[in-house]
Write a protein that binds this DNA or RNA. Structure first.
Lengths: 239, 239
DNA sequence: CGATGCTTTGAACTATTTCAACCTTAGTGG
DNA sequence: CCACTAAGGTTGAAATAGTTCAAAGCATCG
């Protein structure tokens, strides 16, 4: 069941069978969440953490004046609220952007893991560190990149994150976000988001229609985005 | 020497004497870095991590076309590159924004700690998780808040982060950033940054001159910023 | 067919950048 | 002590980027 997590971790380090068994043992319960439903709500103090197995999810915050900002996108194999295990109170919501299948781990089990499995603990810590690195890249893109380059950067990043969990076929992947949701990722109005998409389309290195993004010229897209994948830590090495 | 770190951690959980001793034992070496100098450079693979003891530091990324974005600010008591212990390669630089005093921990010592001190390991992990939460708030502010509210939000946050390490006196703290550096935090031009500062000044809840910020009306500043401190995890509880 | 939820377009308005000065402050050397 | 300099702060005006409002186009579904 937790294959995408194993793919994710094994792109960063080696796991032995015992470790894989321990992960499987704490992720037995499964949950399904429908599109637009919250996986976890802001303000909650969950006693479990959720591993995304299938679908797209996002973190979001609603500001005082009712605007929404998505602060991360999540693909299968990622722990969407692992931090709740230590942080206790959710400072943001987690929403399903497509039908999501989720594996659930009790915090008590994660705590037990942290007491007895230092190597696994470091790898779960690493998972949260990679999510931090992604946030920082989003800050750079939001603050200092041209909007079309920002969009291109997000596509490059998702392409690689999805590829390591085998969700890319023929340079293309399922992408269920509407333009309004994408505007909430980039902090733009819907109208301007639409124009930025058209601008990137005119660069002729990708297509996006009917919930599918196809990268037709990876090198050009990467150059246009100013994308450098080091921050994704895609090197298998002892950690 | 590492008092600010202990203050930081003890605002989130309780440490016993043995744990404090272990932290002191791995943070014996001291380093000083002058203003504008790099603490760590992008692309490096450091074998140590740095705890900030005094001064201000920032993470930054330079984009392909030479623009700079600061992705975090750091105050005493924070581990500025703890993540390098697991992530290995720096995907961004770390610069001193004022004269910095730093305590250095070998990665080998951190690794040993992670093998033998699960509770301390969780607290160091928590430190990196709080830094993530801060990044997410910066994304929200950058994407969906009015610029003056964004600035106010940063000031609220720094006020609390500095207060827990006793760097706030009479509602005021030392703040050495120039307006250009602040523009690199908020992703604005220098000229616009200046106008945003004037706008916030006209709200009459804070002053900023000669490297000193004074919060003259905390409630008003907080309301204006839409600031909610939950994301800083300022509750002492078992983790 | 008609409703519904996205996408696309045009036009007026507002926010932000850019360029080019000028001002202020805190050294620094004569 | 004072003129000189360098760094940072402030201002105005023109150009560009992004928002808002309002409407039209385009698929999908019962």
């Amino acid at each position: 069941m937790i294959e995408p997590l194993l793919l994710n971790l094994e792109h960063r380090d080696t796991l032995d069978e015992r470790e894989k068994a321990r992960l499987r043992a704490i992720l037995t319960r499964e949950r399904r969440v429908a599109t637009h439903e919250d996986i976890v709500k802001e303000g909650e103090q969950p006693t479990t953490s959720c591993l995304l197995l299938d679908g797209f999810a996002a973190r979001y915050t609603i500001t005082g004046d009712g605007q929404r900002q998505l602060t991360s996108l999540h693909v299968p194999g990622e722990f969407v609220d692992l931090h709740a295990f230590l942080v206790k109170t959710m400072d943001h919501g987690l929403v399903a952007l497509s039908p999501c299948r989720i594996a659930v781990a009790e915090h008590s089990a994660l705590r037990e893991l942290s007491e007895t499995e230092p190597h696994l603990t470091r790898l779960l810590w690493l998972d949260t560190l990679i999510q931090s690195a992604i946030s920082r890249q989003w800050l750079v893109a939001m603050g200092r990149r041209a909007r079309a380059a920002h969009l291109a950067h997000i596509i490059c990043e998702l392409y690689l994150r999805l590829r390591i969990v085998n969700r890319v076929e023929d340079n293309s992947f399922h992408f269920p976000l509407s333009q309004m949701q994408m505007a909430d990722v980039m902090g733009l109005s819907l109208v301007h988001m639409n124009r930025v998409i058209q601008e990137l389309r005119s660069e002729q290195c990708m297509t996006w229609s009917k919930e599918r993004i196809t990268v037709t010229d990876w090198n050009r897209l990467q150059r246009f985005a100013g994308f450098d994948p080091v921050y994704l830590s895609l090197q298998r090495q002892p950690r």
